[in-house]
């Protein structure tokens, strides 16, 4: 079954969608969209470093994404606005990454594969890493679910309940770095944030509880991955962007229905 490249690609897409759904909800609730984007952009530097050092790109991406996210968290509140800080660090890392890749003579690198993903080339070992990473992210968030929700709602409320919001923030940061690393192959660094935010945002109008929102986001993400791949196959379009296009269309459709319902009541 895994011999079919479309099957492998679908499984890879679904794995990323499942990890991105609950994490994406927190990204939306905590208004971390730009933070996710920045972490993902920084990962291209990790890709370049791991190619130079002949490491797995998962390792390089996860390390750089983590360093980036921790640096931003540490520097925030020291005089710079968060979006300025993210803009400086993320785009610098992206630029250094692109420049570093150009120095790697001897290796022919298809940069597009890392910017927009190369889901059709997912191997069995890639699948293992993607599902391993996705399982880790989902387990991490499931384990800390209630404290994460409390810390997201209000920091003082979290402290009063014996929860350290800084620790919960760290857990989200780690989960984000893992998700970025496993999603590079599927949608590429430029579209990872889309996989985080669009399914979660689309799920909002259908959900009455945070749990429901995460589950619906997972369903929407999975539909996007499968349908996007089909569309890419039949229309001969790039796979990663096609997945994001389907998610965007679902978001628009659900929002339109929601607006009509509200106008009706």
């Amino acid at each position: 079954m895994l011999d079919d490249f479309m099957t492998r690609a679908s499984l890879a897409g679904i794995g990323v969608a499942l990890a991105a759904a609950p994490l994406g909800c927190f990204v939306v609730w905590r208004r971390m969209a730009y933070f996710g984007d920045a972490t993902a952009h920084a990962a291209i530097l990790g890709v370049a470093l791991s190619l130079a050092l002949q490491l797995s790109i998962f390792v390089g991406a996860i390390v750089v994404a983590l360093i980036m996210a921790l640096t931003v968290t540490a520097l925030a509140g020291r005089g710079y606005a968060m979006d300025t800080l993210l803009g400086v660090l993320a785009h610098s890392a992206l630029a250094f990454g692109l420049v570093a890749v150009s120095f790697l003579s001897g290796i022919r690198i298809d940069l597009m594969a890392y910017l927009f993903g190369d889901i059709l080339a997912v191997s069995r070992s890639d699948l293992l890493v993607i599902w391993g990473g996705a399982t880790l992210v989902v387990a991490l968030i499931a384990w800390r679910w209630s404290p994460l929700l409390t810390a997201t709602l209000n920091e003082e409320l979290a402290y009063a309940s014996g929860i350290d919001p800084r620790r919960e923030q760290l857990i989200l940061t780690v989960a984000l770095a893992i998700t970025v690393a496993v999603a590079i192959k599927v949608v590429g660094v430029l579209l990872i944030a889309a996989m985080l935010i669009i399914p979660a945002a689309a799920a909002r109008s259908l959900a009455r509880t945070p749990e429901a929102m995460a589950l619906i986001a997972a369903v929407i993400g999975t539909i996007s991955a499968v349908a996007g791949l089909r569309a890419a196959y039949f229309l001969d379009t790039p796979a990663g962007p096609s997945i994001v296009c389907v998610a965007a269309v679902l978001f628009a459709a659900l929002s339109a229905v929601n607006w009509r319902n509200r106008a009706g009541t």
């Binding site: 609730w29 208004r31 709602l153 409320l157 009063a160 959900a207 009455r208």
Partner: peptide
Amino acid sequence: YVPQRLHIDATFPIT
């Protein structure tokens, strides 16, 4: 504990 002001973002569904 009853906090001073708890803002629940419109994106956060919770009953």
